[in-house]
Write a protein that binds this DNA or RNA. Sequence first.
DNA 1: ACAGGTTGATGACAGCTGTCATCTGTACTG
DNA 2: CAGTACAGATGACAGCTGTCATCAACCTGT
Lengths: 201, 201
Amino acid sequence: MIRLILAEDEHLTRSAVATLLGMEEDLTVVGQAATGEEALEAIRAHRPDIAVLDIEMPGLDGAQVAEHVATHHPGTRCVILTRHARPGVLRRALAAKAMGFVTKNTPAATLAQVIRTVHDGGRYVDPELAATALDNANCPLTDRELDVLRQVGPASTADDIAAAVHLSPGTVRNYLSSAMRKLQARTRTEAAAHAREHGWL
Amino acid sequence: MIRLILAEDEHLTRSAVATLLGMEEDLTVVGQAATGEEALEAIRAHRPDIAVLDIEMPGLDGAQVAEHVATHHPGTRCVILTRHARPGVLRRALAAKAMGFVTKNTPAATLAQVIRTVHDGGRYVDPELAATALDNANCPLTDRELDVLRQVGPASTADDIAAAVHLSPGTVRNYLSSAMRKLQARTRTEAAAHAREHGWL
DNA sequence: ACAGGTTGATGACAGCTGTCATCTGTACTG
DNA sequence: CAGTACAGATGACAGCTGTCATCAACCTGT
């Protein structure tokens, strides 16, 4: 019998998926959580075999929880669940030693199968995502350009960014300019949005 | 026996909720859809008593589907499902003659109960939301300011917006300016973000 | 020691943004 | 009818943005 906990902030999805997984012969849901903190608490209390973690949660997110689990609870393996199949999220999840990576577009039956695979020591990455993940290597931006883009918000001025990155405002504008050219964006905001979209952030 | 269809773009949530609702004695799920177009098709084919519609769907969204159903399929009543409990979304849903309004934070059991209520001719609006819906009256923006804000994208220039709204670029900037003052935003992008946050969009 | 790449800074310039005062029509209201 | 509110336009002005050419330090490899 595989014991698991389920962390997901939408109550409807969480209760529905939990019920469905619980109906499988070899799976039992021993705990549920709506936030990252609750997830850690449940893992500490129940020591499950598998933790199914949504990435998008208030407070601690799924990847942070997975990282904590990897170092403090080696008996528990993590499966990450995400809405948006962006490569950047995958990179974060893999860095946090997650063993499974599933989008919310996969049917519930597949999720149960992935849980079994991970429990048996295997790995699983959503195939649609594994393909686009090659974008990662294709990132045309330099480290400094990424540093600067990371600071771009809806109301950030060049001086704000300069202060945050310890550069001159002029230099900031230069890096933004070249990033915009590479990404074919017309404004810094658009460039930052594109970069986040690709998970390069 | 209440016959219903379920439209929701996330496969995992959709299949889980469908299975769960199907386990209720008096409910049966006769169709599922991942887009607005598929939802209309399923409604046309199965003539269900209730259509449970997610607002956030590619193509036609839930409110548009509900509007179409209200005029073309009077035998079907709509229950709207949404992730973000924003008042603007509620207004759109009620304008589209939806009878139920539920967020994804309500447990599955409540959803089943709402479906029964709506089937019996009742109405249901998420209580948390009904409270915040008073924000609606608190919206300080005029119609024109909203028109203009609606067109603000990450790379939109004043001329772009002017062309889209059939106004002079100068006038567009005036409306943006007053909207920014009211929302205490420093840029148009920030103002648009704030407005969307409050569901005033 | 010297050429060449990287990192950063500067100054100049056109164009856009936000802000404000002002001027039209136009519709509503007493 | 006069008064008033409102949608829309215009012009001016400071400040920011994007772009570009240029310059000064550094490493780094030969």
